[in-house]
Every structure is written in structure tokens, then in C-alpha cells.
Design a protein around this nucleic acid. Structure first.
Lengths: 210, 210
DNA sequence: CGAGTAGGGTACCGTTCGGTACTCAAAGGT
DNA sequence: ACCTTTGAGTACCGAACGGTACCCTACTCG
């Protein structure tokens, strides 16, 4: 039997859900979860409130979908960086990607995963927790990649992957804050270079044995 | 003529304005400018809405006063760090102070100057701008201190004070984001040490001449 | 053609937002 | 005593919030 292409029953959607989600992501990126109002969102998405609720559930679920899209789009530099052959190149690509993503001329400054819900009222606690988990996941992925570098001999055997990953993540988040404050791409590229001028950093620091 | 101590005319204030401001600062610190509602603030301050308006003007001015208090209190580690004799000690004390302030067991996690208004709706733009200015001021103070170190010969003559200051500030802001996400004090102390394991960082990087 | 199903739009829900008259209470000046 | 000045509390404002009931429209299926 041939699988017949069948359209869904009922009235077809009158808008592009992907494009609407993209616009919602940009609003959340710029204004944060609580700072983005439903009125702003429906205006940017080009649909009415009820269409948004039917398609995405509610504001919180829309935010989670927007975060997924952010992770797969503007934040995809992270996964691309993991594919570099050496830990140094991974770290360099990660920081360079963070700089590029947070200072994109056309888009909002900063990082949705940082400024989306860093501090919130009671209504934004779920979004806050979602972003904490997102950041922790990014840190874990980087830690695993660095651990692989240790196992492969790319980094010294006594290197602390957790510590190095946390350092890179911290610099990335700092870059996001700086970008949100209007610091230029060129200045942040300098910061990224400075952060990696010594790699792996401080062997004498994290190795306690003399 | 002897200056006679005269009490102010009118009914005396029935609450401690300093203590009320302290409590307001803690609420802003934890929830951010927009995330902190007037109801929350008046509950924490122990006064009614009208008393707060009479004493501090409005929510935005209360936030600015709270930021001043934050700068003079929990964020005073910055100025203390500037007094260290060498640039390395300044940077180390600055980062260590940031770690301590953002992970204080009794208080909110993170930094008011970062999470208070990183991304906001239209109503929070003034608070956002105030925090951008606050962060820029902190960076400028650090830059001047580092430039002094260059002038005194503590750092190489070709060291870029702006670049070094921006790097330290970036790591500090990253520490604040990590702290807001629940990363522990010990882990962030490791991050601070890692960030300074090479100081001054990358002479070969910011000196373009071979 | 109905019948069934699902998206779209209007108009509204109750709540909370930041902010403010208005009134009363407590002090000093004369 | 009386007036002025200032703080404190109640009760409220219009606006915006996130969310939804209701009705209409557009499509597939029989």
C-alpha cells in the first residue's frame, strides 16, 4: 500500500509557526521572560493571543520553545565548537562564538540564556529554573569534551575538566553581560583572547602536588 | 552664637529609613527591578506604600538608592581591592571579593548590579541604564588602577589597562551569573584562581610586535 | 451537501501593577 | 491654645497583566 499524503483535518493554520516562534524568541531575548508581555509577543509574532495559546500552550511553554530554538540557532556555536580537534581550539571557538552571538548587529545584545530570567518575580521562577538547567547543560557538555581531551592526552592528565569548563562558561556568561551593556564586539574579542592567552591555565594552580 | 540643635518640624519618622532601604536592596537584589513588586517591597521594608513614596520618591528612585547602598555595602570589595599594592593583588582581591559577595550564605545569590535589570520591559529601561552605568564605572575605576600599575612599572609598559580591566570585569560578571544559578562558592573560587593563573595574561597576545 | 474538526478573532475575565487623593496623627513655632 | 508642617494609613485610581469563553471561519470526510 502506498502511504497517501493526507492533510490534517480541520482548518489549516494561517501562519508560519516556525517564523512566529522565531519572532517570539527575539522578543524574549531582548526583554527577558517577564519583561516580554503577551501584547508585545503577539505583535511580533503577527498572530493573536488565542492563536498563540492554541499553538504553544501558554507563555511559559512558548518561552521553553523559544529557548529550544535559541539553543539550536544562535547558540549552536557551542556544539560546533565541541567538534574542534583540540581543547584549546574548542575553548577558543566557544568563546569566539559567544562573542559573535551576543553582539550580532541585527539582533538583541546579550544571551537569552543569561538575561532571559536571571532574577525574576514569583511568576518567572519556572523560566529562571529552565535557564539554570540550560546553562548547566552547556557546562556539562563542555566539561565532557574537555575530559575527552584529558583522556586523549591533549591536555595534561592532572587537568581538572570541571574546573576548566566552568572557567570557560564563566567567561562566556561575563561576555553576555558585557554585551548586554553595549560593549563592542571587538572589545569582547580581546577579552576572549585574553582569557585564553594561557592554555591550559595554571597547571601549578590546580595541581596541588609540587 | 551657639548652633542650637533643633529637631525638624513636623511629625518625626516612625521607621528607620536606613534599615528600610537595606531591606529594599535585598528584595531588588533577589528579584531584580521589575521582578520586585511594591507589595513585596513594602512588606520587606515594614512600611506602607505611601511612606515609601514620601521617603524615597518612587520605585525607580528607591532602586537607585538601593544601588548606592549596594555599592557602599556588599560591593565595597571593589574599592578595597584597589588599595592592594600590586595589580596582581588588586585583580585577585577583586575576583575573590566578587565570589564572596555573590555567594553570601545569608543573602541573595548573584550581583544586584548584574541581575537587577539585565533585560527588562519598557518600564525597566531606566534601571537597566543605571546598572550599565554602574558596571561601566566599576570597569573604569579598575582600569585606572591598572593603568597606575603600568605607569609605576608594576606591569609591563606595553600592557593594555583597558583590556586587562575588561577581562577582570567580565570574569566578575560571569561569576555573578554562575552564583545566581547556584554554583558554589568553592567552585567559583577555583574559577577566580584559574582566571588569574597567568598574570599579566598573554603578553604575546596584546603586543602585536613579534 | 451536511457533519465533524480545528484555527482565528473579539471581547472579556479577575488580578496585579505602580502610583495617588484624602484623612488623621504627632511634632515644633509663636 | 492654635497654626503649620510633616509622616502614616486607608482606600482607591486607571492601566496593563496573563489567560479564556464564545463565536465564526475554513478545511476533510462521508
Amino acid at each position: 500500500m502506498t502511504a497517501q499524503e493526507k492533510g490534517p483535518i480541520g482548518r489549516p493554520r494561517g501562519f508560519d509557526a516556525d517564523e512566529a516562534l522565531q519572532q517570539a524568541m527575539l522578543v524574549f531575548w531582548e526583554h527577558g521572560y517577564e519583561g516580554a508581555s503577551l501584547s508585545q509577543l503577539e505583535a511580533a509574532m503577527g498572530i493573536t493571543r488565542t492563536s498563540m495559546y492554541a499553538a504553544f500552550g501558554n507563555k511559559e511553554q512558548l518561552f521553553r520553545k523559544a529557548l529550544e530554538r535559541y539553543d539550536a540557532g544562535p547558540a549552536a556555536y557551542g556544539d560546533r565548537a565541541m567538534e574542534k580537534p583540540t581543547a584549546r581550539e574548542v575553548a577558543a571557538a566557544f568563546l569566539a562564538g559567544a562573542v559573535m552571538a551576543t553582539t550580532r548587529p541585527g539582533g538583541p545584545a546579550g544571551c537569552l540564556g543569561v538575561q532571559g530570567a536571571l532574577a525574576t518575580g514569583d511568576a518567572g521562577r519556572a523560566a529562571h529554573d529552565a535557564l539554570v538547567a540550560w546553562r548547566e547543560d552547556g557546562g556539562a557538555r563542555l566539561r565532557h569534551r574537555i575530559q575527552r581531551a584529558v583522556d586523549e592526552g591533549d591536555l595534561p592528565a592532572d587537568a581538572d575538566a570541571g574546573r576548566l569548563a566552568r572557567y570557560i562558561m564563566t567567561v562566556s556568561f561575563g561576555i553576555a553581560v558585557q554585551a548586554a551593556g553595549g560593549v563592542s564586539r571587538a572589545e569582547l574579542q580581546e577579552v576572549a583572547e585574553t582569557a585564553l592567552s594561557d592554555w591550559p591555565p595554571g597547571r601549578d594552580v590546580y595541581a596541588d602536588t609540587p
